[in-house]
């Protein structure tokens, strides 16, 4: 896929998301001149510990998109087993098909060229509601989630509160 085509595809998605916003997040560009770097604002999903939070994240697309996946990084601090402490999101659909370092991901759970910003965000929202502690990116958060849930809840609540303050 040429650079031109990946840019066209991303512009198309941006226009579509502006026209028909999807519940749960809003999307735009970090810098209007760079279609490959997106900024999304994710609304903490209802009935989860993250409810009420506003989490800002960046999505970085490679020029080979959609043949290769983007990377996603939370800018707002967030405590979750599948998000590294530096904000990097670790979900299987953002991993390339041949890139199964640990051998536990089925090919069908990994990156496909039909994924869009919308499908990625839906996966991330579902990850927030339902952490996968088989492949923790934040081992401390995963351990706490399993063994000391009250403390896990407190940490998440603090992130939610801070994210609200940042929005003011």
């Amino acid at each position: 896929m040429s650079e031109l085509q990946s840019a066209l595809l991303l512009r198309k998605q941006l226009a579509e998301l502006n026209k028909n916003p999807v519940e749960g997040f809003s999307a735009g560009l970090i810098d209007d001149s760079d279609i490959y770097r997106w900024e999304v604002l994710l609304i903490g999903p209802p009935d989860t510990l993250y409810e009420g939070g506003f989490f800002k994240a960046h999505i970085y697309f490679p020029k080979e998109y959609p043949l290769r996946p983007p990377k996603m990084k939370f800018i707002t601090e967030i405590w979750h087993p599948n998000i590294e402490k530096n904000g990097d999101v670790c979900i299987s659909i953002l991993h390339e098909p041949g890139d199964d370092k640990w051998g536990y991901e089925k090919a069908c759970e990994r990156w496909l060229p039909i994924h869009t910003v919308e499908t990625i965000m839906i996966s991330v929202i579902s990850m927030l509601a339902d952490p996968n502690d088989q492949s923790p990116a934040n081992v401390d958060a995963a351990k706490e989630w399993r063994e000391n849930f009250p403390e896990f809840k407190r940490k998440v609540a603090r992130c939610v509160r801070r994210s609200q303050e940042e929005m003011l």
Binding site: M1, L67, R68, P97, G98, A107, C108, L112, P113, I114
Partner: peptide, 18 residues
């Protein structure tokens, strides 16, 4: 579109059939 993908991963992007 599909040839570029198949050179990377030999699966159908829609149904994931090998």
């Amino acid at each position: 579109c599909i040839d570029d993908w198949l050179m990377r991963s030999f699966t159908c992007p829609s149904c994931m059939e090998p």
